[in-house]
Structure formats: structure tokens, C-alpha cells
């Protein structure tokens, strides 16, 4: 394997591990951005440069900004990180860690190694994706738009400032 690929993969995994172990939320967000960037590099190597761009623009850009905004609005402080520390004592990790490790092992066991290797990576361009997206999968696009609309309405409704309710 290429050294660059190894580097990106390790950035991704280590970033993800850091995300779930941080005590301060903003740090976790920054590590998550690093994870996304590593993943985007991997996607480029897989030939999906369009997907990589979307990963950076939408995930690392838009969704992470959402997180940052919410964390800013929540106004977390010193007591919160202390409480996080309280919640993250080692014995808490035991059960979930074992469960995740079991699933990881099982999934790895279930992967059937493919011996035939594809000669070279043929990039799948945005053009191909667009043709497929608005050809065979046009109904999927409609459904996704419904989903986004529903999410919009739900977020608006939940986040509405209900002065009269209090």
C-alpha cells in the first residue's frame, strides 16, 4: 500500500478515536474535521474525487459549522468538561469497548477477501454521477428532497422559540 494512503487511513482512525475521547466539545469537532479530511483524501485515492469534494464542502464545511454554532450557543464551560471527565472514567469504557471490539472482529471475519485486483483506479467523475443520479436514481433524489424538507420543517418546529410555553 502506498505510504500516502497509509497516512490518510491512520489520520482517519486516530482522528475518530480522538473524537470519542475528548472532554471539550470544540476539540472533538476539530478532530472530526481532521477525520473528514483524511477520509476525503482516501476517497480521492478511490477515484471518487467528486465524493471527496462533497465530503469536504458539506461534511467538513457545513455540518461541522452547525456543530460549532450549537456548541457556541450552548455556552459550555469549565464545569462541563469536569463533568465529562467524571463520565469518562476507565471502567465506563469496558462494556461498550468490548461490544464494539466484538462487532469489529465479527465484521472483519465476515469480509470475504477479494483476490482479483482491479488493474487501475478509473476515476468516476461528477459527470457520471450526475447521469446516474438524474437518470436511474431520480426517484431517490425526490425522496432525499422529501427527507431534507421534513428535516427542515422538523428542525424549524423543534427549534422554534416558544415563549408562551414556558
Amino acid at each position: 500500500m502506498h505510504a500516502l494512503a497509509l497516512l490518510a487511513a491512520s489520520v482517519t482512525v486516530i482522528g475518530a478515536t480522538m473524537v470519542i475521547t475528548r472532554k471539550v466539545a470544540v476539540h472533538a469537532v476539530l478532530y472530526l474535521v481532521a477525520t473528514m479530511l483524511g477520509l476525503a483524501a482516501l476517497l480521492v485515492m478511490l477515484g471518487g474525487s467528486f465524493a471527496a469534494m462533497l465530503e469536504i464542502i458539506i461534511y467538513a464545511g457545513a455540518i461541522m459549522v452547525l456543530f460549532v454554532f450549537v456548541i457556541m450557543m450552548l455556552n459550555l464551560g469549565q464545569p462541563d468538561s469536569a463533568r465529562e471527565k467524571e463520565w469518562l472514567r476507565p471502567h465506563v469504557w469496558l462494556g461498550p469497548g468490548v461490544l464494539a471490539a466484538i462487532i469489529c472482529a465479527e465484521l472483519l471475519y465476515c469480509i470475504v477477501p477479494l483476490s482479483d485486483s482491479v488493474p487501475s483506479v478509473v476515476p468516476i467523475t461528477a459527470h457520471d454521477v450526475g447521469l446516474s443520479l438524474f437518470g436511474r436514481y431520480v426517484l431517490m433524489v425526490e425522496l432525499a428532497s422529501f427527507l431534507l424538507l421534513a428535516g427542515l420543517v422538523a428542525a424549524f418546529h423543534i427549534g422554534r422559540n416558544r415563549v408562551e410555553d414556558r
Binding site: T12, V13, A16, T17, V19, I20, W87, L88, V92, W93, G95, P96, G97, L99, A100, A101, I103, C104, L107, L108, I111
Partner: peptide, 14 residues
């Protein structure tokens, strides 16, 4: 797989 398991552990533990 590794990434998924890390995420799963995060959901369970945090």
C-alpha cells in the same frame, strides 16, 4: 469496519 466500531463505541460510551 474499524471506523464503524470506533463510532459505535463512541455512541455507547458518551
Amino acid at each position: 469496519t474499524v471506523l464503524f466500531s470506533v463510532g459505535l463505541a463512541g455512541v455507547l460510551v458518551r
